[in-house]
Design a protein around this nucleic acid. Structure first.
Length: 445
RNA sequence: GGCGCCUUCGUCAAGUGGUUAAGACACCGCCCUCUCACGGCGGGUUCAAGGGUUCGAAUCCCUUAGGCGUCACCA
């Protein structure tokens, strides 16, 4: 059996759509699971669509996602160049060979001379797809395709066949949108007398719009590129992991959290799904959270560095420990920690809590003595604060929740905080804590 | 419109003639708890519809419907 070789062949648009990333991932996983090669080839034959720096962007994105090509424009390889615009002579040669053999012809147009592929008028073309089985399309559906454009560039339909053959690609993994043009490619392989690769056409990734309608994932569904997701503060590993499961599932296992190595080990073609998958942010959030929870406090603090810059080393690590179990993406951090920096406006209503039997009135009775006790605390550590408050609770004979509630509100002016009262006291420091408590007390009075 | 592909809980999905139709996310409830979260326990909802084939169908066949794709000198 020939060596397994797959390729990812994006056009350089400067945008890595999640669907494309998934295609690249599956091609990579399949190649690696078979001990084969994964190659990156840039299909830049449409000069109008070219975006500068896009090639570099694509390589950076794949690297961030840990999808490492064996051959690429940057790495090079046995079949270089890997950028189609640098292979024009090759396409010209093969196109002319087709003309010479009567499988294609020149066409004179206003734009210049182009070469078209001659399609059979009758009969049908059948090819095998791993996911879909045999697919047959009548040749009468096919029109004579342009092979070489008047500007000398090949079309996708031509270049991809030439390159896949020359680069010895064994398995073509791409989106379903190419199913109907595959017969044209198959005919080309036949004209040249080349061996057919194996086709695997992947179902698209869909998105759910605000109004509940489902359509192919696009910008109107919010962040839909790998880069958007990174910007939002998802970990690359989490994104890759989630995307892997959008259209593939492991055999004989319910595992969901996968490292790249585990994905490679578990990946099989028959785990691929042939129906479209809807991108679900809720599940991405969950999975992302699992990655954060699994991190050490130090690693999380590093990852969240730019959001925790205001805190000293000790508090940074401590905050990280509180945040990492509550965050789905790093950008969730600012709204959660804003109150530490700036206390939200005073709101007496917040002091009312039915479950803990707290009222603004009751709060005054708790805050006043609590402040007195905290003022005497010199060793402002979690441990000491905990002991002092526990002793105070005991003294008052109140339920712990009843005591904590007014303290939390006074310190944060919000019902929900990352961490308990002791944690907030520690994060705020003695000075700021007492300022906030006294302020609340006087406003309540 | 022609042609092609697809159709199991709200979402991701397992399942390949005999299962109480897995599991996960989400949702709801309970427990834990100084809040939220975490964690623990439990719950509801699914084979698009209709015909066949079969002792027996989510699994095989046909029809219908819906969704998606494609009909470019774009990929």
């Amino acid at each position: 059996m020939n060596r397994i070789r797959t390729r990812f062949a994006p056009s350089p648009t400067g945008y890595m759509h999640i669907g494309n990333l998934r295609t690249a991932l599956y091609a990579y996983l399949f190649a690696k699971s078979q001990g084969g090669d994964f190659i990156l080839r840039i299909e830049d034959t449409d000069r109008a669509r070219y975006v500068s720096d896009a090639v570099e962007f694509i390589e950076r994105t794949l690297a961030a996602a840990k999808i490492i090509p064996d051959e690429s424009p940057a790495i090079g390889g046995k079949f270089a160049p890997y950028i189609q615009s640098e292979r024009m002579e090759i396409y010209k040669h093969y196109a002319e060979e087709l003309v010479a053999n009567g499988y294609a012809y020149y066409e004179e147009t206003e734009q210049g001379r182009a070469i078209r592929q001659k399609m059979p008028r009758v009969g049908e073309t059948t090819f095998f797809d791993v996911l879909h089985g045999n697919i047959t399309i009548a040749n009468s559906e096919l029109e004579d395709q342009v092979l070489l454009k008047s500007d000398g560039m090949p079309t996708y339909n031509f270049a991809n066949v030439i390159d896949d053959h020359l680069m010895e690609v064994s398995h073509i993994i791409r989106g379903t949108e190419f199913i109907t043009s595959t017969p044209k490619h198959v005919l080309l392989y036949e004209y040249f007398g080349w061996e057919l690769p194996t086709f695997i056409h992947l179902a698209p990734v869909m998105g759910k719009a605000e109004d509940g309608t489902i359509s192919k994932l696009s910008k109107r569904h919010g962040a839909t590129s790998f880069d958007d997701l990174i910007q939002a503060g998802y970990l690359p590993e989490a994104i890759t992991n989630y995307v892997a499961l959008l259209g593939w599932s492991p055999k004989n296992s319910c595992q969901e959290i996968f490292s790249m190595d585990e994905l490679i080990a578990a990946f099989t073609l028959d785990g691929l799904s042939k129906s479209p998958a809807v991108f679900d942010y809720a599940k991405l959030d969950w999975m992302s959270g699992e990655y954060f929870k699994a991190m050490s406090d130090e690693n999380f603090a590093d990852a969240a560095q730019k959001y925790l810059a205001d805190f000293d080393a000790d508090r940074k690590i401590f905050l990280a420990s509180l945040l990492k179990t509550r965050v789905a993406k790093l950008s969730d951090i600012p709204p959660m920690t804003a109150f530490l920096k700036n206390l939200p406006p005073f709101d007496a209503e917040l002091f009312t809590n039915k479950r803990n039997k707290v009222t603004p009135q009751k709060s005054v009775e708790i805050l006043a003595p609590a402040i007195k006790i905290l003022e005497t605390v010199d060793d402002w550590t979690l441990d000491t604060l905990n002991k002092k408050i526990a002793a105070f609770v005991e003294e008052t004979g109140l339920k712990i929740g009843t005591v904590m509630w007014p303290l939390r509100i006074a310190l944060s002016m919000q019902k929900v905080t990352p961490g308990g009262v002791t944690e907030i006291l520690y994060l705020l420091g003695k000075n700021e804590s007492l300022i906030r408590l006294n302020d609340a007390l006087s406003k309540l009075n």
